[in-house]
Design a protein around this nucleic acid. Structure first.
Lengths: 329, 329
DNA sequence: ATGAAAGCGCTAACAT
DNA sequence: ATGTTAGCGCTTTCAT
């Protein structure tokens, strides 16, 4: 059961391959009569055009790579869903790579994407170092960073306004009288965690207070470290009155374990980031800071399309505005 | 900045394209000397092999399509993550399609996958009708249904044991003295919902009780109908003492709205399906029924690989065993 | 041990 | 209005 090709249709009809091709593209150098014959035969024989052959000829694959640390993260999968919809509407198909926050897997994902000749790449970088960024730049493939970016590098990116987010979190807690929060962030290579902390410090400074380094816990951005972090949390003095967490996922993980441990800390006010509840209604009280609208997905896709059609286009830097929301109060 | 091809390397070295090809594949009809020269030049010029050209020649793309109703659903994104990992380890890359539970989008997704000449398809079907199943069968593309299947059709599939799941849910509730649960399912085209209901009825029958149709609510499997379902729920008499919900996602959505409405129903025991908590720890009490292990992803991928390497292989039917788990008791 | 050439399926340029 | 041909990048015969 070989696949039906233009050649087969041409043979069946006693015309040339070029004629069939032109007829199917509805070009005006083919008579209506032949076009009808061709279309009928095409349907009858079940012809399906061959993207591989077309890609080889045109140099375009109409494929983009989406490379992310964790597809199963609610924020990321929601963004991928939005991107997939836009891509489809624009004739593009996304291929997916999960890097597990691992630079080497990320590197091989980029190489695989390059071998597949994707037209562009959307990358949420693992960000341990800049090697993979260099790789992308050297290969001159159109790419946009989304969700995370490197402050010191001039690339296109779309990211949430994390400094403002940090400020909102701290302002909220200060406002309800909590002056001794802990910040649970990630290792410092993740600039969004650093920026959120920066925002927290700014908000404290604005009130003439300081937010000391001693109240920062650095944990992994991967899931599965909730228990470990609970251990670190329990070492803090009882004056701690609230918690700010780098992401909802990590916050949920920690509170899951605090609940299981029946720890008093489970009662502390928590503010975290991403607004997972708004993608996915969850039946418990939670305060989260996240982006307004679907800018992350739509802007990063728009910029990528732009860059694909005009490789000389300027880098664009988009900070999506954030807001604080209280769910299931 | 054209892409470097074998031709370029051959020209730079004054050898033929075939020689370079053989050298890079380390075939033994090429002298060590030439191999070294070729490898050096290849690295120097930054050659990246071209999957498109290779696919055209070999007829293999090393690509599989994953077609699902909702990528952002926690169960699905977790499975995709597992599948992606296995695929990568086997030299395959997944392309992703989101159907939004829509038959037409699903159909065009299948066509797009076919045009891209994917080696196989993993499909979680929208299941309104069987047209798309026929399309796949007619095209003779290797495919496996996962997460959902058609009971009357002989295809390969991997799915949870939903009848048992329904039984476990009902047994649990009967055991804690709840004799009047409501079942919130989907329209009947989703066979997993039907099977879960069947299991519930079986468990009731085993106790000499009956579970009447009047205690079934049929809602959409898409998210966003929580509010509507709350309305239907409120019409039931107060004798209702518990709720069984088709999926965790829908259950969370409903309880989210019940909480916001400060409804008494928010206090009722709820059992739902998928065990979302185990993929993603969530900080609230919940009872869920889900699959043991990662069989859904690993089995469906294994069967697909099998079918790709041997298109004549038998259809395999796998029901993954389920268990009930209580989280954050 | 290496080179030359065919061909995967298609489109576009050129020829008739 | 239709046919012919070249070529996208590669691997694989088949010569040498």
């Amino acid at each position: 059961m070989k696949r039906v090709t233009l050649k087969d249709i041409a043979a069946a009809l006693g015309v040339s391959v070029g004629t069939v091709s032109h007829a199917l593209s509805d070009m005006d150098d083919i008579s209506e009569e032949v076009k009808i014959k061709v279309r009928e035969k095409t349907a009858e024989m079940g012809y399906i055009s061959d993207d591989v052959a077309n890609s080889l000829r045109s140099g375009k694959t109409n494929t983009i790579a989406i490379i992310v640390p964790d597809i199963s993260n609610q924020l990321i999968s929601s963004q991928i869903k939005l991107i997939e919809t836009q891509a489809r509407q624009n004739g593009y198909v996304p291929i997916i790579f999960n890097t597990n926050e691992n630079e080497e897997i990320e590197s091989s994902a980029i190489m695989a994407a390059l071998r597949k000749r994707v037209d562009g790449i959307l990358l949420c970088p693992a960000q341990h170092n800049k090697d993979n960024l260099r790789l992308l730049q050297k290969r001159k493939v159109p790419f946009v960073l989304f969700g995370r970016f490197f402050e010191s590098e001039d690339t296109s990116y779309v990211c949430s306004d994390d400094v403002k987010g940090g400020r909102l979190a701290a302002e909220y807690l200060l406002n309800i009288g909590c002056r001794n929060p802990i910040y649970i962030g990630t290792e410092d290579y993740l600039e969004c965690s650093v920026n959120r902390l920066r925002g927290i410090k700014e908000a404290f400074a604005a009130e003439g207070l300081s937010f000391p380094e001693s109240r920062v816990i650095r944990t992994s951005s991967e899931s599965g470290y909730g228990m470990e972090t609970c251990g670190k949390l329990s070492l803090f003095p009882e004056t701690v009155d609230s918690i700010i967490v780098f992401s909802d996922t990590v916050a949920f993980d920690i509170r899951y374990h605090l609940l299981n441990l029946k720890s008093d800390l489970a009662g502390l006010p928590v503010v975290s980031f991403d607004m997972t509840h708004s993608y996915y209604p969850l039946p418990f009280h939670h305060i989260s800071i996240g982006m307004k609208g679907d800018g992350l997905a739509s802007e990063s896709f728009r910029i990528l399309m732009n860059r694909i059609s005009d490789p000389e286009s300027q880098n664009e830097h988009v900070l999506v505005d954030v807001e604080l929301h209280e769910f299931c109060r």
